[in-house]
Nucleic acid binder design. Structure first.
Lengths: 181, 181
DNA sequence: AAGAAAATGTAGCACTTGCTACATAATAAA
DNA sequence: TTTATTATGTAGCAAGTGCTACATTTTCTT
């Protein structure tokens, strides 16, 4: 059973997840977070050893939440051709979009091997490739190739979306549908 | 002809470009930049009205430099199938890679509509799609679709590369080559 | 050479950052 | 009920941030 302090920590962490999901990583400071969730920086450092530990736990929780959301939005396996547009719809969903935006920030930091972001990003990447793999209708050997390809395309789309290149995304999807196995 | 001050500014800007390309956006502060290029924050604010103006000019220059590099590395037009691996090689080039890393940081900020990053990112995006278009061997109608698709895939690859997912990149490229028009 | 304009130095302000020291109040264990 | 543990408050530090005020030197123009 959970001690009272543990429970409070959980509650704060939940709220911090929401705040980070809404406001991104850049504006994250102990004081900011504390104010947003109704406590003090002092207390945050009571629950977590330091900022890095805090971010690790919160980001891990956020990533768990995303996985849950994705699992709930799951369909039956569909061929690659249809999967990409389907996932594109998914990442445009207002519930999912904040996660994608955060993902972009995570990648930017991960690309400089900054911890804990690098490790967490790798973990999320693995999860997403698995997720793609489960959704692709193909034999194992093809899945092995198409899952990473799907991941890449969705990532790329997310980036174009970040700079309001929707029309280009549409064109690309159009171009993609012209391909066949 | 250029005044002496203009010349000095140009010189500093050149050095700042290199510094930002090497160290990224996150550690950019006036004092940091100044120290790196051998001047004072005071002087930077003499040459530029404020930090935003400075960043706009420096990032624009960096983007111009990238375009120059890309133009120099240009080949004859090749079909989409070959273009993607070719561009993958290109972004792995040690000369180009820092630009890609910076690009990821730019996107992260652009995705929150943060200026001047958003505008500059859009501009670079346009340039790159044009660049792809010039390199694709296809008729105009197809180029219109394949250039954005190429852009998306290269972006996606850049992201996977940021989290050391090379093996997945290889698999994806393998998967891509199985497709035909 | 005299005056105007540009370049540079030195200090500082008001703010934010992660984190700590030192305290007291509330709760749990004995 | 005493005692040990946990929770929370208040203050502050040392470092960093963009930017400004005020001064002086250097350079260019006439």
């Amino acid at each position: 059973m959970m001690k009272k302090g543990e429970l409070r920590k959980q509650e704060l962490q939940e709220k911090m997840s929401i705040h980070i999901l809404t406001n991104g990583l850049q504006s994250v400071s102990l004081r900011n977070l504390a104010k947003a969730v109704g406590t003090s920086d002092r207390m945050l450092l009571h629950y977590y050893q330091d900022k890095e530990e805090l971010m690790t736990e919160v980001l891990t929780q956020i990533s768990d939440n995303l996985i849950t959301i994705l699992e709930q939005a799951r369909t039956v396996a569909i061929p690659f051709n249809q999967l990409v547009p389907h996932l594109y719809q998914l990442i445009k969903d207002p519930v999912v979009k904040p996660y994608i935006q955060l993902w972009l920030e995570l990648i930017a930091r991960a690309s400089k091997n900054e911890e804990p972001y690098f490790s967490i990003a790798k973990q999320i990447g693995d999860s997403f490739i698995n997720y793609c793999s489960e959704l692709i209708q193909a034999d194992e050997e093809e899945k092995e190739k198409l899952a990473p390809l799907t991941f890449i395309i969705i990532e790329g789309i997310a980036m174009l979306d970040a700079i309001d290149f929707e029309s280009n995304i549409e064109k690309a999807l159009d171009g993609l549908s012209g391909f066949q196995k």
